[in-house]
Amino acid sequence: MNIAARLEELRYPFPGCRTLVLADLAAGLVLGTNSGNTRPQEQLDRLAQSAGRLLNVTFPSTALLSSTIHTVIVIEGDVLQTFITNPADGEVAICCTGSRTIDTAALATRARALLAELGGAE
């Protein structure tokens, strides 16, 4: 399975999405990427590491969150980053960076379908 090609399929309907990264959350590693233009590896690594930190954040009190975080959206200025994982299988995530106008709900639905497919293919 060509991960880059599948990521490109995922990115295509979202013109505001500049870069997609498939990340291993535990290791903070980039497993695959697709971008509209060349991105320094350091940027991709930072994206994967941010996904690992934010999706794996622990909560000292179950009064705050009783289940695992599966979606993170960060908006700053005109830039949006979102990190999406499957609640049932949180080992890998799809990270997106792009415009804050991205329909994150639609992207999350498609990203989770791809994550499920990739998980089943392993």
Partner: peptide
């Protein structure tokens, strides 16, 4: 918990300066 998350949050490479950062984190409930 918010302070913990702020400490680990990425600083986005915005094309223009920003003075506001919004972070949303969702679980199932």
């Amino acid at each position: 918990q918010a302070i913990t998350i702020w400490n680990m949050a990425p600083v986005l490479e915005t094309s223009r300066g920003s003075s506001l950062q919004i972070i949303l984190l969702s679980s199932n409930d």
